[in-house]
Nucleic acid binder design. Structure first.
Lengths: 326, 326
DNA sequence: CTGAAAGCGCTTACAG
DNA sequence: CTGAAAGCGCTTACAG
């Protein structure tokens, strides 16, 4: 079923059908009604590929996440989808697992005109080949903002938030605050570590111990916690780079019979729902995940509509929520 | 940059460039080399929309999930993406939140030729309008298999698994086994409830108490648990329809000072990673989530390639894992 | 082995 | 207000 056939049924030209389809009000009401009737009669739905090819607009957005399994990511994606829908856009999801081959396969959709722009939530910024692939296409980095790249960004002040986390723990009389950080490829990891070290210095604390994880999952958090408990003196607080990591750490502490927060305090990062149901509930630094998604889409669509626009870098507010674990 | 320009640079016709692009081996090696050089020289990437329009194959799959935030969903999506990539397909994600408007917007992409087929993980089956939209397009239901519909499916035997759960709890000397079930729109909810009731009858248990949740999140699980504890006699075991629900329930039990499993046992469903880090670790019925994703894609692509094929209904194996909570 | 031509199904100046 | 025609960028019989 094509526009040509609808036109024939309605007794008009394809151009007129197209005008009706696109809500152009220059069509005479009577004609319009005939067309609408024909469309309904044959249950016609335009071929979107043809339209996209012709207009060179796909109204699709590529979203590159490193791990959709991470609740932080899925909450951001939710915000992205909500806002995209509002603007008539659809989402193509690439769950990259930080796999460059897969990322580049998806990014080639930009040059292939299948998507109009991309939101990245992975550290593409350190994979030079990939940034070449993005080239001049509309791009916003979400949750991470490397000003070196020609991309807009939506983030929080990671360094400041991490410092605040350390001060919070210090206010709870903790002296030996360990950090479980993730892959230093991520700019946010670097920034949070910097904030952690800065606060430690300001406080005059000597204890400074950092364990790195390669994946942001419970198992990685558990392993890191085990390592942290091996050397003396043991920490009396752990600051985890993500709530998921904190969850893994807490399970090890329970196993070893340590009391949270008396023996050791635990502070997370992200503000993911499961932090509300841990034992004890997890204190954490909340990122505005939903808002991350919404603003990212707004910036991206703005850039798609006005390509000559300058990149903008948004810093949203974080918030420290104290629950039972600190 | 179009195929025409590449052809001009290489001194051949567009048809020849197209043949090289599509790896057709009838091209003379010398010609082939010239073309490849031209492609490299101008960094050419074919317009995928044009190709898709011409071949009427988009190599895109639509995935409809009700809530990407649910770890069950994201683990299945991961499997889907992995297998799709293997076949050269990309994923369009619709996080429907069970919102019919959004679902139908995405489903219209089927008739719009933007996607070649759809995998649903939501209860579209009870939204008649939506199944009309899917029409005769390739469709597989994942995690739910309603034989009434013209769709293939990949599931487990939900009724059998639920019965086994009840028997497991009975073997732990539980007599008052409550069920926290989800929305009865879902076929799997109906099937699991049926398995639960069947086992209860077989065991001759009189206690039978079911609480329903509308959302599959921690909060909903917590609320349901609170209600369950309000009437006497209290249950000595809770069987939750999902691990996330179980997590919410456990937090309430901890708050009320009840010991798990001594005072009350908790059994989950899904086998999601966070069940490993609860206190105590969660016993659960594991669904092969990754395999769900993989098989769904295989069935779907098979159907895309051979539309006349009959629908197939696959039942995969579940597994009861006993951890500390039962 | 290669090219000229038609066509996928739309949209959009242009002319009337 | 409407239609004829061109064109988006590919692929694919068809002919040579």
């Amino acid at each position: 079923m094509s526009i040509e056939k609808v036109a024939k049924i309605a007794g008009v030209s394809a151009a007129t059908v197209s005008r009706v389809l696109n809500d152009q009000h220059i069509v005479k009401p009577a004609t319009r009604d005939k067309v609408l009737a024909a469309i309904a009669q044959c249950n016609y739905q335009p071929n979107l590929l043809a339209r996209q090819l012709r207009t060179s607009r796909s109204r699709m957005l590529l979203v590159l996440v490193s791990n959709i399994t991470n609740p932080f990511c899925s909450l951001v994606v939710r915000g992205i989808e909500e806002e995209a829908e509002r603007h008539g856009y659809h989402i193509l999801l690439c769950n990259s697992e930080s796999n460059p081959t897969r990322e580049s396969a998806y990014l080639s959709l930009l040059r292939g005109k299948v998507v109009d722009g991309v939101i990245t939530m992975d550290a593409v910024s350190c994979l030079p080949g990939l940034t070449d692939m993005i080239g001049d296409f509309p791009w916003v980095q979400c949750g991470e903002g490397d000003p070196e790249f020609r991309a807009s960004s939506v983030t929080i002040d990671n360094s400041q938030a991490a410092s605040a986390g350390v001060y919070h723990l210090a206010a709870k009389n903790r002296q030996r605050i360990a950090l479980i950080n993730s892959d230093m490829r991520y700019l946010y990891s670097q920034q949070r570590e910097q904030g952690y070290r800065k606060a430690l210095t300001e406080l005059g604390f000597e204890y400074c111990k950092i364990e790195y994880v390669e994946e942001l999952d419970y198992t990685a958090g558990a392993k890191a916690m085990e390592k942290l408990l091996q050397n003396a003196p043991k920490p009396d607080a752990v600051f985890a780079i993500s709530d998921v990591i904190a969850g893994g750490a807490m399970s090890v502490l329970h196993q070893q019979g340590l009391h949270i927060p008396n023996d050791i305090a635990v502070l997370g990062f992200d503000g993911v729902p499961f932090g509300e149901v841990t034992t004890p509930p997890l204190s954490t630094i909340v990122q505005p995940m939903h808002q991350f998604g919404i603003r990212s889409v707004q910036l991206l669509i703005n850039k798609i509509k006005h390509p000559q626009l300058d990149d903008s870098h948004e810093i949203l507010e974080w918030q420290l929520i104290e629950r039972g674990s600190t």
